[in-house]
Design a protein around this nucleic acid. Sequence first.
RNA 1: GCUCCCGUAGCUCAGAGGAUAGAGCAACGGUUUCCUAAACCGUGGGCCGCAGGUUCGAGUCCUGCCGGGAGCGCCA
Length: 623
Amino acid sequence: MEKPHGPPLSRGRHGWSAGALHVLGETPTAMNVFSHFRGEIAALVERLSAAGALPAGLDTSRVTVEPPRDPAHGDLATNAAMVLAKAAGKPPRAIADAIATELRKHPSIEAAEIAGPGFINLRVRADFWRERLFDVLREGLAYGDSGLGKSEAVNVEYVSTNPTGLLHVGHARGSVFGDVLASLLAKAGYKVAREYYVNDAGKQVEALRDSFIGRLKQQCGEPIPDSAFGTIYQYPGEEIADAARAALAADGARWRALALAASPDAVALDAAQRFAVGYMMDRIREDLAALGVRHEVFTSERHDLVEKGKVDAALEALTGLGHIYTGVLEPPKGKTPEDWEPRPQTLFRATNFGDDVDRPLKKSDGSWTYFASDIAYHLDKFRRGFRTMIDVWGADHAGYVKRVAAAVKAVTDGAGTLDVKICQLVRFLDRGEPVKMSKRAGNVITVRDVVDRVGKDVMRLIMLTRKNDAPLDFDFAKVEEQSKDNPVFYIQYAHARCCSVFRQVREVFPNIDTKDSRLMGISLNLLTDSGELGLIKALAAWPRTVEAAAEAHEPHRLAFYLYDVAAAFHGHWNRGKDEPGLRFIVEGNEPLTLARLALVRGVQLVIASGLGVIGVTPVEEMR
RNA sequence: GCUCCCGUAGCUCAGAGGAUAGAGCAACGGUUUCCUAAACCGUGGGCCGCAGGUUCGAGUCCUGCCGGGAGCGCCA
């Protein structure tokens, strides 16, 4: 991603450890304050070693710099003294003393205090924080972009619902989660591929085809009752009737001939299947677009794997590695199915790679199992250059994680890693009452239904208000409420308030120039209030939040962060109600107003930047 | 029976191996009907399910239990 480079403003002006920073190779992207000072402290430890105050060759990899739990302790806390104590052969507090003494000489450090078992609490000078606000203004929406990923290729696969019906609400969470995770990783400097796996090879798509043909027959006048769909024909969904209508509208003669044929040949059947799958995928893509979810790669199980022989090839590879054998599985313990019979099967030695039992690769009719194509699919991703793969699945697939992770390990010979993110169920409620998920027989509530009702912004943000592996409540009454209890409203409102300040300032200062270029040229020394500095500190936490969320594959952290920033902003705004001197627009004092506008602009940019990753529109006005 | 996920304030949940564990709601007590936009300020509330272990340090990592949810040969 293109962004203006150039070192942070504090660099080089003072000369403290200027050389050491280069040794550490810190990237000149927007500063992650915490990793910045981690680097400073690591360099300092080296200098103390060189001077003989500490032993040489200390390992500083476990040194962390974090926000202290209690803000009263300062801006930053480091555990350096404690993690170095053992190797240095000195008590933590002695090391802390040495480090703190040096840190007090640092031009950006106002105070360094030793606390508890050997923490060093740092207070950073206000000037340093004010310069971080310039970082925000300079980088704009790109603030928070990170080089963390070092352009490493990562494949994120999400949604991947079967093309046998529409995208129902149950798929919304994984869709949003995957989409935002992909955006987040891109912001953190990874090269991301957004992928959808189309399961168009199994019996289910044949059943779709047959239901589609049934609908064709019905629409061509054959006496097939609606009750046949869901019984004789597997899929009852109205969308399959839509598909039939679309087919007849496009080429009536051709599809009528197929519908009325006594026994269609294989070519005709295949054409019907392709049409039905194509139609469903179009509808799914439309609904995903309405939700703002996009993919770059659609991999077809049938066309890209099976027909290209990649399933056979993958299984041959596994065989070559010695991970496949023929054997008989034990029945599942505790609950043996009625029709259980011991039978020799083609098995993958999953137990060698952390799974609990070996897994079958062939069905009794000799065809590959779904698991077999999944192995081929992940090998295919790996061969396309993705060592890191992330799959986003629904809770109902949780039991499948171990075997696929085992297969990835086996088939890539340990070189590929798979992280499966499981999204727990969403309970859709209205005023606390569960919402029925089926409208009438065979017609479930779709993602589109909900997006049409509440909008994509609400849908997306709410889906990130919980950790992926915790269940989530989606209450229609609550998410549409305009109050501070609604996180969507609360965050949007903070952004809208920022916009409102810029609109209103013209009434007081008709000719004021509030362009970023102007704001970057002013002095921020007038920002002295604790609320103002607190807001800047909140903004300065954005790069760290992006990096941490990306590393953990946890996009929900962005939503929580934005809520915190909004809370800090609303809190400061509210203080201005009682103390007019704290308001952003100060009549008769343009320099102060400009400094505060810079702060408002920073809040606006960071919220817009964060909402951008989440895929939510930052609104300029509440309505 | 086995596997995975969850268990943190009355409720819904945050919590990146660090200090005296946080937020919102609810409860309680006050303020305000202002116009800078949909309220604001404050208070109380906790064996972080239980028991061990690793660690200088565990809500966080490991093991075992207890409780809740999901899944469990060839479907996808």
